[in-house]
Design a binder for these strands. Structure first.
Lengths: 346, 346
DNA sequence: CTGAAAGCGCTTACAG
DNA sequence: CTGAAAGCGCTTACAG
């Protein structure tokens, strides 16, 4: 059953069937209902592939997950960020009549842009923790519509790429300010790898909150970790050894915060009574620690929603689309943070 | 740039270009290299859509995530099972030349099969926690190639559907047997909702291990939970109130095991010194609890790998494909289980 | 509001 | 081993 058959059965031309299928409007109501009836009766479904070929538009957006070769994370999709993002992207895209093609590649794979090259997709959203700058440039230069969620605040491109980013600086500022407002004056910061831009930004946020409140920043309160649990642990141990355990700890990600939580627990230090701990990311895990971890949540769904809509606007040629938007993480108060107690166990 | 142009530039016919593109073999080496050279030179990429239309094959497999309307899980993709499964599916499919189209729908959505209807996909894999029996039947009756990972052991279909399932009974048996072998004689079981087939199966496994070892099954050692943390907690509390805390606890999923872990921790009971705890699922969380949770891991990647390959075999018309395969969960020993101590704190 | 014709970019028999 | 022709199932101008 194809449009030709439908046309024949409805006594019209294929052009008219096309008009009905796509709701073009310039069809006489009677003709339209006649065609619709036949389509209904024969359970006709237009062939998506034929439509793509003739209309030169796939109505498919690629979701290009680029794996970091170093980081052997078991599954990218199970990632706290990417899961909800993909979910949102699919829903929002669907409402606009777009489908999603999912691809996973390693960062050095020569075929990353294949989906673009063979015209399988109209646009692509890149999901990755690695540096996509070169790939994005290449794609944009070829005229492909690209979008990214830039956690690293690293994409320096003109407006040919749609990018949603998070200001790590402002977010870290917000977290630190929150602890200061709780009365804490001695706040430890477990930073991420310093070579990463996001680490630098977060550190700046931590510092600027101190500065603004007239608090001194002490280098020994800053511990450099590698975004994993072990380093959260190590930070606490180091501070305890030197006898300079802060009354509040801000970790640059949840994993390190959880490591700190565990270390404190082992040492018999109560959270949040003795020490407050706040993380960053709002990984699912954070809801299951005891005490439940307070943290900074990146508004991933909102970002994903904006990204896909902007990208579709762009590829559909809509004018005056704002191609870049910056978000700030939200504070999620749970059980691991509390007001500073006056009487503190030494 | 299209195949016609390539043909012209290489001085051959389009048929020959097609032969080269698809590696059909019956092309003279010299002709082939000539064509390849031109394709290379002009950076030619065959249009996937045109290929699909003419070959009547999309080389796309749909990943149909069907959401349970009751269960408002934040993100299905972040699910401990679906994440790694999708990952594996994409990789395995890619090696076979297939792409993945991802769709998320609610279980009562009338458009669940749209991707099939409009010929966007050659086959579909359903991912869901809800009962897919009706949907699968409908799809199979329409001749669509379908595959499922059946955690519920509920799909009763002939071999028109490819299904990979897990024997909950054998897996639960294995977990229980493990505890018995550690010397435990008093093993509590936190079962899941009894209306779910998987719960019944797991309970049977628990019982059969007891039977086989000559141990009695005591109804008061069985607590019915709803697969969430709170119920794991409640189970422990109930057992403590009645003074009948087992020396080992087997929970029908990790969340309940974690709940039990937390409850024991609060009561000052040491794990695994006083009580052993084992879960089921091997959720990522389990690696982060303290002590780290021993659990039963469903071999999701292996299942996904088998599923996609079998499905592709089937749609490519390969003969003698085994369309159903049953897996057993693997024991993951971590820190929450240990040999029964003779001297037990009362 | 409607239709005839051409075209999208490939592949598929068929013939040689 | 190679080519000419027809076709996949739609949509797109164009004409009326």
């Amino acid at each position: 059953m194809n449009s030709f058959e439908i046309a024949r059965l409805a006594g019209v031309s294929r052009s008219t069937v096309t008009r009905v299928i796509n709701n073009y409007g310039n069809v006489h109501p009677k003709t339209k209902s006649k065609v619709l009836k036949v389509m209904e009766e024969y359970n006709y479904r237009p062939n998506a592939t034929a439509k793509k070929l003739s209309s030169k538009k796939s109505n498919v957006v690629g979701l290009l997950v680029i794996k970091d070769i170093d980081q052997s994370s078991p599954s990218f999709l199970a990632d706290a960020f990417f899961g909800p993002m993909i979910d949102t992207i699919i829903h929002s895209a669907s409402k606009r009549g777009y489908r999603i093609m999912l691809d996973i590649k390693e960062e050095n794979d020569k075929n990353i842009l294949n989906l673009f090259h063979d015209k399988s997709i109209d646009a692509g959203i890149f999901l990755s923790w690695s540096n996509l700058q070169p790939t994005l440039h290449e794609a944009a230069d070829l005229g492909y519509h690209c979008g990214v969620i830039d956690f690293d605040f690293a994409i320096e491109r003109d407006d040919s790429i749609v990018v949603m980013d998070v200001s790590d600086k402002q977010s870290a500022y917000k977290a630190t300010k929150y602890l200061i407002d709780l009365g804490h004056q001695h706040i430890g910061f477990i930073t991420g790898i310093k070579s990463k831009r996001c680490s630098i930004e977060r550190l700046e946020g931590y510092k600027s909150a101190h500065l603004e409140s007239g608090l001194e920043v002490n280098e020994c309160d800053i511990y450099e970790g590698f975004f994993n649990e072990v380093d959260g642990n190590a930070a606490v141990e180091k501070w305890m050894e030197t006898g300079k355990l802060p009354t509040a700890i801000f970790a640059a990600n949840d994993k390190m915060a959880i490591g700190a939580l565990n270390a404190l627990h082992k040492k018999g230090i109560r959270v949040p009574e003795d020490v407050s701990v706040i993380g960053y990311d709002d990984v699912i895990l954070s809801q299951y620690t005891s005490p439940k971890l307070s943290t900074m949540k990146v508004p991933v769904s909102e970002m994903a929603h904006n990204l896909i809509h902007t990208l579709i606007d762009k590829l559909e040629g809509k004018e005056g689309v704002q191609k870049r938007r910056t978000f700030i993480a939200e504070l999620v108060e749970r059980e691991s943070t509390a007001k500073l107690r006056k009487m503190k166990k030494k």
